[in-house]
Design a protein around this nucleic acid. Structure first.
Lengths: 149, 149
DNA sequence: AGCAATTATATTGTGCGCAATTCAATTTGT
DNA sequence: ACAAATTGAATTGCGCACAATATAATTGCT
């Protein structure tokens, strides 16, 4: 097998591992989040809102690297589930401010055991944890430099 | 901020990084694969078929960790794009064997530069590349042990 | 042989992700 | 002041992922 062909081997490809790991992690979250009535992306939105309650769609999108095409329908679902409310800002009618409801805030307590469960499931030592984080950040920085938004 | 919240942030970041990195990598593939008329998951299927031409849906699914709910429509699209054919096996009519067409085989040459382009875009040294691969495999093994298919 | 599991694939329904487009509100340039 | 450009969000369309279900073929059990 020549060099060009080696690059085309699935088992040698790091990118497939990232893709597969992302799906495997999502699967680990699923049963935990199902109990809260959330999907993983919805959980991420709630995490951001638990940190800072009032945010616009744009601000959420910047932190999660998601655009309005993804966020708008997701936020609608979270609204109809009763976890948040959306309203146009008076100061700038283009912006939509997302506010947690009491139910949305209450969900935080129910979610408090999720991180520890997941961390345990990852099976990483502390040093491997930070090493993995460092490498992923490096990949993202490099990829985004080559392929700017 | 209390302890539960801290652990929460820690876990969040790594899982989010894997999720974000997966999407960033997909974005890097997109323009390269668009030229071939493939999506990233379709490219993965083609990689497997380039290595071993005749495979059943089940065999593809095992290597890519995808089920028929994902693969069946994807393979239909690859068939209608002219890259492969699907036919029930005579020896076992439950199985569907996937065969590359000439066009599907020809695509391999056009894709031969993709792995090198992506590797360059990842911006990793060889040792970081393998270290990241090792850590992702460890995460997947651990997560799947806790959460068997 | 005959019926109950099991197996392989397909289908249905839901929720992302993301490119492209649309629309209204605001900002910029002159 | 006002037309042009920009911005923020929503919508549309497509292709995954994946749970749940359906269907048909094969295998196992007795």
């Amino acid at each position: 097998m020549n060099l060009a062909d080696q690059g085309l081997l699935l088992e040698l490809q790091l990118c497939f591992d990232v893709y597969a790991a992302s799906r495997a992690i999502n699967k680990a979250y699923r049963p935990l989040l199902e109990a809260l009535g959330l999907t993983y992306p919805q959980y991420l939105v709630m995490l951001v809102l638990w940190q800072h309650e009032a945010q616009t769609v744009k601000q959420l999108g910047e932190q999660l690297q998601l655009d309005s095409g993804t966020l708008s329908p997701l936020l609608k679902r979270l609204e109809s589930a009763g976890f948040l409310q959306r309203q146009r800002r008076a100061s700038d009618e283009r912006e939509v401010e997302i506010q947690l409801t009491d139910a949305g805030r209450a969900l935080r307590q129910q979610a408090s055991n999720v991180p520890a469960s997941i961390f345990k499931a990852l099976g990483l030592t502390a040093s491997d944890y930070f090493e993995l984080k460092r490498l992923l950040h490096q990949v993202m920085a490099s990829v985004e430099a080559n392929n700017p938004d």
